[in-house]
Computed example of a mutant assay.
Amino acid sequence: MCTNLETRHLRGLGRSVSALGAGCWTIGGPATNRGVPIGWDHVDSGRAFAGLLHAHDLGVTLYDTADVYGLGRSERLLGRLLSLVRRSDLVISSKVGYLASAAHPYADGQMRRQLECTLANLGTNYLDVYFFHSTDFGEGDQYLPGAIKQMRALVEHGLVRAVGMRAPHTFALEWATGPSHERCTHEAARFLHLYEEIRPDVLTVRHNLLSPLYTPDETDVFDLAESQGVGVIIKQALGQGVLLGTHCPDRMRAFRQGDHRRQDPMFTPEALHEVHHGLASVREHFGEAVSDLARVALRYALARDPAAPVLVGFRDAEQINTTITSLGEALTTAEITWLHQLLAPLRDAFTARMAKSHAPCPSVRRLPSGMGAPTIKE
């Protein structure tokens, strides 16, 4: 195994991991969950497994999957890798709470049964991090206390090393705890309530070139986590490929039934056209190649928190090679500032577009305890 890949110390878990981790959502292939497309089409399991092997050869030690990714296919592919390598060298995370089942995913005993299935798929007897994948804990959060109790029991029995939780795409502590704010406070207050109840060890959050910036007096997810010794894993640094220029608005792809992009507002012709033209100066300055744009996107994400690893998705060995080997030199402070300023119009347009895809949320100071929320896509 190559050891040249940078490493980071993941707070909350207390383990050193590769700075770039393998996000295994993509390799699960097409899937639907309660009729909703949640997967990726055009995935060949043989080529996907070759990608996993190549990631390991390149020094990747962090692998993130979920029970719902390909309805178990992603976990089973990762299990094939684990059968060939030393388990203790790798950090494996999976998730629970989103997969449709007869009972509510967080109902009494359901998490333990789902974990048993996940461990069987992976061929391991423990997870390094187990994430609450959904914030839907039933009507009035009726399953929340039991879910927390179940998770703590899994930790006590050594089946789980650290507890994970998803953070919202936009968050500032002040939005949830202060007076009515211009920005939407509903999701921020909901997250803070669950965060205080669950007390996770690790958070996962989307952060990329199009993520909103925060003012010096705002405490975002990274600041909150650092202040409390909680780890952060960054996802969607490449914008699901959109930031790599691989989705040309003039040659739109047709996504099949089990591909989540059929319903993702980021993959509409208007959005792709917006991003393509908004990144013109970035391509002109850093280069047109996929590897050039990957370096910018990944280095930008890695610069946010020196302890936070970044997940990259892939379908095959070629894709994982392009991203993992593209890092090069870190971006300078001047380059990051230039990107902040250059992409401000695109960032605002993207934030507005994503906001329109969700129901508007009221401006409230704090949600009543137990108020439910719908499941949110990756």
Rank of each mutant, 00 (worst) to 15 (best):
A237V: 05
D217Q: 14
L194C: 09
L127V: 06
P362R: 13
Q319M: 09
S88N: 14
T268D: 06
P360F: 03
G241S: 03
A120W: 00
V60H: 06
D41S: 14
L327E: 03
A48S: 11
G178F: 06
A100T: 05
R112G: 04
T325W: 01
T351A: 15
H133S: 06
A237I: 04
H169I: 15
G21C: 08
A66S: 13
G239T: 02
G109Q: 13
W40I: 13
P105S: 08
L90R: 09
E6S: 14
R86M: 06
L339T: 01
V205E: 04
L343T: 01
L342K: 11
A359M: 10
L173V: 10
I198V: 15
P37K: 07
W338C: 05
A162W: 09
V202K: 02
G372I: 10
R34I: 12
G39A: 09
L5K: 03
F222H: 09
I27P: 01
D264Y: 02
L127K: 00
P168Q: 07
F286I: 09
T135Q: 13
V155D: 07
Y69D: 07
H42M: 09
T375P: 09
L298I: 03
V85E: 10
G239L: 00
E182K: 14
G72M: 08
S180I: 15
D201N: 15
D108S: 14
L81N: 02
D67P: 08
V364H: 05
A373D: 11
